[in-house]
């Protein structure tokens, strides 16, 4: 039995502990805002916060989450009002949107750790998150704007 909190709610899991957190969130908890993009930690679409740090849910087995706190995009803010979400809206960042929840979670974790990142730090922190639609120029701009606002 694995227990954890997800978006502030206690959850218990008693299946295959090797199952990646990604599938637990999506298939069992119905939290489909966390996306499947590659399954091998190469795209960032599945990014969630584990005890406040950005991790890739696709390579994080449920067993590694015992006793820890998970925040998904659904738990980042109640109403899309997190500074990063607001900046995303102001810059019209999403195209297809599929990568964007992972991007937002990664950016939120970056600003938590480095409130005023420079361009190199932004690129470095975001390099693991692919956007196949190519929204990177706006991602950079939105992160800079969120940093100023926060």
């Amino acid at each position: 039995m694995i227990s954890m909190t997800v978006n502030g709610r206690r959850q218990e899991f008693s299946g295959d502990e090797a199952m990646p957190l990604l599938w637990y969130l999506r298939d069992e908890l119905g939290l489909t805002g966390t996306k499947f993009g590659c399954g091998v930690s190469a795209c960032g679409a599945c990014t969630v916060h584990l005890d406040g740090k950005a991790v890739r849910a696709c390579v994080t087995p449920v067993s590694a989450v015992e006793g820890r706190k998970v925040i998904t995009i659904e738990g980042l803010s109640k109403d899309g009002s997190h500074p990063v979400q607001r900046a995303w809206r102001a810059h019209n960042v999403p195209q297809c949107g599929y990568c964007q929840t992972g991007q937002i979670m990664q950016a939120a974790a970056l600003l938590e750790a480095t409130p005023k990142p420079n361009d190199a730090e932004i690129d470095q922190a975001m390099a693991g998150n692919i956007c196949r639609c190519g929204t990177y120029v706006r991602i950079r701009a939105a992160i800079r704007a969120a940093a100023v606002e926060a």
Partner: peptide, 18 residues
Amino acid sequence: PSVDMADMISGAALYGMD
């Protein structure tokens, strides 16, 4: 702005995979 903006930044947007 996109009519799907709010859904896309909150995780509510529904794709085939979901």
